[in-house]
Simulated scan of single mutants.
Amino acid sequence: MWRHIAANTMTFLIVALFLLVGGISWGVREYRAPGPLTEAICLPVPGGVANTDALTETLLERGAITSAFIYESGARYTEKSGEIKRGQFRIPAAASMEEIIDIVTRGGRNTCGTQVIYRVGINRTVVDVRELDAVSNSFVDVVSFEAGQLEVPEEYAEVRAAGDATYRVVIAEGATSWQILDALGKIDILRADVTDVPAEGTLAPRDYDIVEGDTVSSVLDEMRTAQQIILTEAWQNRAEGLPLISADEALILASIIEKETGVSGERGQVASVFVNRLNQGMRLQTDPTVIYGITGGEGVLGRGLRQSELRAETPWNTYVIEGLPPTPIANPGEASIQAALNPDTTDYIFFVADGTGGHAFATNLDDHNRNVARWREIEAERADSD
């Protein structure tokens, strides 16, 4: 009898084991199988969600998953249940539970919903409000206006009141530290807690995600950290034989390159001109440094340079001083920093605007004078057509 009981027990355990293994295999297949969504949705994930419970309920209500047990089991098994990120995320049609977990725990930029972008430029800061349609995966512009207005558009006020938008500030390459600080002070979701202008050149111009209540100082700290990382890495991988003794000098040169050209493809050539001039003991003779000596980086000059200003002795007037000015003249982007430390190899020592937005380069004065004469003709033709 005992043998009969033992045999039955063994049979039961074997069957149970097969059922367990089969159940797990089925659950894994369901976890990785295409989901029930027939079209993409925008999934808001509020702050404070530390586990999958609240999110699971939302996903069930939106018809994105079929089983709370399988979804939560998968999240726990992959150790992602405590890694859910705050934001708004686009969940594509037929996304599996595995894909959804990856989307909401991956982090990074929000991929749908209402976005408010503060674009800090050289002359002004523009606020763009746009909405991402989850189904078409394309943005629809809502409103655009200049920051600092006494009365903001109703559409913007409604977005602020709704409380579910995401915010980003975009810093233009070549903006000065004064311009950046002034612009951040006009962004109404930030708390202004800084009055001292950051050191010129130390802020990385790029995109930064912000949230309501952030301080200006915290955003500036993030910019400083980003710029230091970029500069340190570029300095470590610099070309040999550069006439630069420190990363600080590289930053100064990069800022001049940034202000001299907006054409990405010629940064290396512009850098080569200045490197060649430094190596040959020639003055840099670049207008943006003269302008910085006049404005101190506070706004734009708004007019052409006078001959008296080109002759005036200031620490930044590279028509008068030897070598580099004492500080950067703007906040250069990563591309200009890379160009300063890895310039093109050329014999160019002159360049002038060519009328297309770029420059004509020359290795000798005669060619340069011809390029200048052509530029003067272009200027005259444009003046006549106005």
Rank of each mutant, 00 (worst) to 15 (best):
G163K: 08
T314D: 03
S308Q: 05
L203P: 09
K80R: 13
V170T: 13
D221C: 03
A162S: 03
P36H: 07
D366T: 15
R306W: 12
E334I: 00
T52P: 02
Q280D: 15
G82R: 14
R29F: 13
Q269N: 02
Y156K: 10
V263A: 05
R370A: 13
D188V: 13
L37Y: 13
D102H: 03
S144I: 05
A95S: 15
V300F: 07
D133P: 12
L278H: 05
P36Y: 01
F18Y: 06
S96K: 07
T125E: 12
V169C: 09
E233V: 07
E155S: 11
T202Q: 10
L181S: 08
A93D: 08
E200M: 05
P36N: 04
R206S: 02
Q149M: 13
R119T: 14
T318I: 04
V15I: 15
P198R: 09
S136W: 06
L55R: 02
R29V: 07
R76D: 10
T225V: 09
I65F: 12
L220V: 06
W316P: 04
I101T: 07
L220T: 03
S25M: 10
S177H: 08
V219F: 09
A33G: 08
D196Q: 13
L17T: 12
L203A: 05
G293D: 00
R109A: 14
K85F: 07
E212Q: 15
G297L: 02
G82M: 10
A383F: 12
E158V: 06
G302K: 06
T232E: 15
F69E: 14
L220D: 04
R311G: 03
E131M: 04
E83F: 11
P343Y: 02
G48M: 09
Q280G: 11
A239T: 08
K186L: 12
G299I: 00
V104M: 09
Q285G: 06
E377W: 02
V127K: 13
R86V: 14
D102A: 09
V126Q: 14
E83N: 14
T56R: 11
M97K: 10
D128I: 15
A40W: 08
P326A: 00
L324A: 02
T314E: 01
A54R: 05
N237L: 11
A162Q: 03
R160S: 07
D102L: 02
K186C: 10
A204P: 00
G296D: 05
G27K: 05
P343T: 00
Q227E: 01
Y208Q: 08
G268K: 00
A165T: 06
G87E: 13
Q88W: 08
A95H: 11
G201H: 12
D133F: 10
A161D: 04
E173G: 07
I189M: 14
V126E: 15
R374M: 05
P288A: 04
A162L: 04
D367Q: 15
E334M: 02
G63S: 12
A339L: 03
E377T: 13
G304Q: 11
E79W: 14
E309D: 11
Q179T: 12
E99Y: 01
